[in-house]
């Protein structure tokens, strides 16, 4: 590789990233528009952010979403990690194939169907719909994503480390808690973040499974968007984008710092 990059490649990169980012960028820019009309620029203003603060409906929806997200992501991480361990460490148990199918199917199942089936289930067992049904639904569909993330890490995991622990007298359970989990926690954390983001993002499943008093932010945004584009929604979206972007960038930088430290350690070792 020459380190130089051909014109064709530059063009495809520029075009690709412009396509990915320009829409988001316009949304952010117009959230600072003084005009009520979203497409006419009338000068810089933060008026919509102040409005937002006083919009009780939106703030309440945001609070519901955050609670659902934190709770469902945590439970989903626990369940998803257990499922990943079961599938990657226990070769044989009754119904293993069924379990694999149940983990992978929700990943590609259209959201309308997952939402519909969960709602019909909650109706059938006569459970009052609201905060808890949304949370249960989110746990169910996000835990499968956690399983996939953790499982792929477990499959690349150096099994001789677990063998070594057992060889040194650690029972399988001790091995899991003292060797395996401490080493795969970045994947578990990534699984949590994915589950949390999916929960924050979800409109369809929440719409099906929610009940009175449990309107989530995406549902609120959706109902307003259907009435037309408003700068206030732009402002909400900008805040959400800022939160997520900060999270992703910080994680990436931390990872990079870890890699740099690792490289330095290896140089040190080579010199030792």
């Amino acid at each position: 590789m020459t380190g130089r990059i051909s014109k064709f490649n530059v063009v495809s990169l520029v075009f690709g990233f412009a396509f990915l980012y320009l829409p988001i960028l316009t949304l952010v820019v117009y959230s600072f528009n003084a005009s009520k009309l979203v497409t006419v620029w009338a000068g810089f203003s933060t008026v919509w952010y102040r409005e937002l603060w006083h919009n009780r409906g939106l703030m309440e929806a945001a609070w519901v979403t955050l609670r659902v997200g934190l709770l469902s992501a945590s439970v989903a991480t626990l369940l998803g990690t257990m499922a990943a361990i079961a599938l990657s460490r226990y070769r044989r148990f009754f119904g293993r194939t069924l379990m694999t199918g149940m983990v992978y199917a929700p990943l590609v199942m259209p959201e309308v169907i997952t939402g519909l089936s969960l709602l019909l289930f909650f109706v059938a067992i006569d459970m009052d719909r609201g905060f808890w049904t949304v949370t249960l639904a989110h746990i169910s569909f996000t835990m499968c994503f956690v399983t996939v993330v953790v499982q792929s890490r477990l499959l690349t995991f150096d099994r001789s480390l677990e063998d070594a622990a057992m060889d040194l007298g650690a029972t399988p359970t001790v091995t899991l808690f003292q060797v395996t989990l401490p080493l795969i926690w970045p994947a578990v954390a990534a699984g949590w973040m994915l589950a949390f983001t999916l929960s924050l993002d979800d409109l369809v499943i929440a719409s099906f499974t929610t009940g009175p008093g449990a309107t989530t932010l995406p549902m609120k945004i959706y109902s307003q968007v259907r009435l037309g584009v408003t700068p206030e929604i732009n402002a909400v979206c900008t805040i959400l984008i800022a939160i997520v972007a900060t999270g992703v960038v910080v994680t990436t930088l931390l990872n990079k710092r870890r890699l740099v430290r690792q490289a330095r350690d290896e140089r040190l070792a080579a010199g030792a």
Binding site: D158, S160, L161, D163, A164, A165, M166, D167, L168, G169, A170, T171, P172, V179, P182, L183
Partner: peptide, 20 residues
């Protein structure tokens, strides 16, 4: 007898040192 109860120990090819 499971590996963790056997009075033998192994030195692994990859060394399998716990990196953490």
């Amino acid at each position: 007898i499971p590996p963790y109860r056997r009075p033998v120990n192994m030195m692994f090819q990859s060394y399998a040192l716990f990196p953490h």
